[in-house]
């Protein structure tokens, strides 16, 4: 059976804060940070945006692009580490707002930055088993970085929705296979009731990100008997600009293969949206027949790898919704005070 992507949609808030502005507040050296993180600025939600509104906008964009009847959606899974409610699903909000209710199942996912791709895998399972016709998988976040923490330079806002289906004629990309590599690795967490996450500093790198990304990627290529050269594009989770570049290099992917999907430089790490944002940006320009290799990473820790082949249908639907490049142009820059207000870092009581 062929499983794949029927449509995709992305959303990025219009507001940005530059690395310089955050560095100015904390007395850090912006030039060193920009060089080290390979991030210039990050997206910030509007005062009236959160992971749910971003998920809805991304899902509506996917619906506009795919132009199918929303009642066909049989499952909505939203992955986020910043669900607006601790208890009460984001996915029901999304399902209602896209007109998919009530004939469906829904739940929220959390797996740090890979909750979105975990949702994709769950939808793949439901679709391929025939339990549902279409599955809507979303990764959306308004991620939190504690004031002055290193994460504050990259923790951004954005989301991507993928519609997963099995009807070959309506797929814009076929997902050939997926493979995951998961261990219990406490590199990053946020305790219940805490506003900001904690992380293991440099421990997040080698035993966290790189171990899981490379093992998942190698595992999938072994399973499919493919090599980096078989792919036109590659996308890796991008917590900053440096990690995905290093991971690509370690696995043997070229700079050119990862370039289209490397959106972190201009919008930061959109967490559950991060890797999927890179995929959306790549689909925005891929040609029919192109192959895309994608590996997401979520702290805690695990990686999901996907092997994807673009179909002819991409040309028909691509322009029916905004491309990532269109979403991220024309930003409105905030100073730190405005940013603090937007992120709710100013307490009123």
């Amino acid at each position: 059976m062929t499983i794949g992507i029927v449509s995709y949609g992305a959303y990025v808030p219009r507001y940005r804060i530059k690395v310089e502005e955050i560095a100015r507040l904390w007395g850090d050296d912006a030039e060193i940070l920009k060089k080290g993180l390979m991030v210039l600025e990050k997206s910030v939600p509007a005062l009236d945006e959160d992971a749910a509104t971003i998920a809805v906008e991304a899902a509506r964009s996917a619906l506009a692009r795919g132009a199918f009847d929303p009642s066909r959606i049989g499952a909505v899974y939203t992955g986020s580490e910043s669900h607006p409610y601790a208890v009460k699903p984001t996915s029901t909000i999304v399902a209602q707002a896209v007109g998919a209710t009530p004939d469906l199942t829904a739940a929220d996912f959390e797996f740090a930055c890979k909750a979105g791709t975990a949702a994709v895998q769950a939808c793949m399972g439901l679709v391929s088993s025939g339990m549902v016709d279409l599955g809507l998988a979303i990764g959306a976040d308004v991620s939190q970085g504690a004031p002055s923490d290193a994460l504050e330079y990259t923790a951004a806002a954005g989301g991507v929705a993928l519609v997963i289906g099995r009807n070959e004629s309506e797929l814009c990309a076929v997902i050939e296979d997926t493979y995951s590599f998961t261990t219990d690795t406490p590199d990053f967490w946020r305790r219940e009731g805490q506003p900001y996450p904690e992380h293991g500093g440099r421990f997040t790198g080698e035993p966290g990100y790189f171990k899981h990304v490379t093992n998942a990627a190698k595992g999938l290529m072994k399973k499919l008997d493919t090599k980096p050269e078989d792919y036109d594009y590659a996308v890796f989770h991008q917590p900053n600009g440096k990690f995905p570049r290093n991971a690509a290099k370690m696995l043997g992917f070229s700079k050119e293969q990862i370039a289209p999907g490397l959106v972190v430089t201009k919008i930061g790490n959109t967490y559950s949206g991060s890797c999927m944002m890179g995929l959306a940006a790549t689909l925005d320009q891929a040609k029919p027949g192109d192959r895309i290799f994608m590996t997401a990473f979520g702290s805690g820790a695990g990686s999901d790898s996907f092997s994807i082949t673009v179909t002819d249908r991409i040309e028909e639907i691509r322009d029916k919704a905004p491309k990532v490049s269109e979403l991220i142009r024309d930003p409105i820059y905030l100073d730190y005070g405005q940013y603090a207000k937007h992120k709710g870092k100013i307490r009123f009581a």
Partner: peptide
């Protein structure tokens, strides 16, 4: 039209979308 938060019933109450 866009989908946004209209408000909320304080920090503990429901969020109005």
């Amino acid at each position: 039209s866009v989908f946004r938060k209209l408000g909320s019933d304080g920090e503990r109450g429901m969020i109005y979308y």
